[in-house]
Amino acid sequence: MTGDSSFGPLAGDFSGRFVLDGPLVRPAAGDAFARPASGDMAALEQGRIVALKHKRAVQDVPGPAAGQAVLKDALSAQPFDAAVTGFVLACLPRSKAPVLWVSDRKSRQENGRLYGAALKGVTLLRVEVSHPRDVLWAMEEGAACAGLCAVVGEVHGAPPVLDFTATKRLALRSEASGVPVWMIRSGVAEGLSAARERWRIGSVPSMPHPHDPRAPGAPLWEAELFRARGRAPGTWIAAHDPAAREAADRLRFLPRGAGGGDAGPAHLAAGAAG
């Protein structure tokens, strides 16, 4: 029996046992989900048959891998909110290689322009065009350039040229060349996408200022992962600490509480103080 092709090449029977040749497995109906043990994951990577009851080949870590060469979407939760731009900048890998940043006219009107001289650890090659069609062309050409650290494109709304086929081309080019690609979408941006991960980012009240309780502190973002392959969806409070010693600690996540998330900034502030 062959599994759903959208989940990668699978083979198995009705007992919930599969051979895994792709990055994600689909269990039989009724199987519970849990994180796989290390031995089970080794068996998955080798393509051996494993029982999937009470197991899951999905990562629970929310943070996007900076150097992962896939297409990822970042949608703005509300108009004129710079949170989505800050989140993508925090997710970019730190490298001496430049980042190609392409934006259309309407995106610049709503999101503004990046000031490259103020960005530490990021070298920008900024391209400004008028039409989303030109953004997609520049992104696809840039994604084929191994000399780039990453490619970021800003498209406003849901233009007809930004369909599933266009995003699939970007995803394939990114995975073939090893260049991470981010698509920032502002305005009404619902629609199909071949992105491996789709995030919705919005601003929340900042952390307390360490020296003045009346002044705003470091920014905080509400990061909702609403679609992903190989990663569990969820909503978190995210904070960026550019001074962290380890790269993995620069972008920190705390689950968004059901009571409105007031505990999130407090816990992140406590962690920063510690």
Rank of each mutant, 00 (worst) to 15 (best):
R198K: 09
A171C: 06
S193V: 14
R196N: 00
A171W: 15
R196M: 01
S186H: 10
A171S: 14
S186T: 15
R196E: 02
P180I: 07
K168P: 01
A166H: 12
R198C: 05
E197F: 13
E190F: 10
A195S: 12
K168M: 12
W182M: 09
R185W: 04
A158I: 05
A176W: 05
R198V: 00
W199A: 00
S174R: 08
L162W: 07
P159R: 06
G191S: 03
W199H: 04
A158D: 06
W182P: 11
V181I: 14
P180S: 04
E197R: 05
W199Q: 01
D163R: 08
S193L: 11
L192M: 12
L172C: 12
A158H: 10
E190S: 07
A166M: 09
V188E: 00
E190Q: 11
R169E: 08
G191Q: 07
E197T: 05
S177N: 13
E175S: 08
G178L: 00
T165V: 14
T165H: 10
P160R: 11
R198D: 01
R173M: 08
R169G: 06
R198T: 01
R169C: 03
P180Q: 05
W199K: 02
A166C: 06
E190N: 07
M183S: 11
E197M: 02
G191C: 03
T167W: 06
D163Y: 05
R173G: 02
G187P: 00
E175M: 09
A158T: 11
L162H: 02
A176N: 04
G178Q: 02
R173K: 13
R169A: 10
M183T: 03
P159N: 05
P180C: 04
S174D: 06
G191W: 08
L162N: 01
A171K: 14
K168L: 13
T165Q: 12
V161N: 01
A176D: 05
M183N: 06
E190A: 04
A195T: 11
P160A: 12
W199M: 00
S174Y: 15
T165R: 15
V188L: 06
I184L: 13
G178F: 09
V188W: 14
W199T: 01
G187V: 05
A195H: 08
T167E: 10
A195P: 03
E197W: 12
V188Y: 13
R196T: 03
A176Q: 08
R173W: 04
R169H: 13
W199C: 00
T167Q: 10
A171Y: 14
I184C: 03
D163K: 08
R169M: 09
D163P: 04
V181N: 13
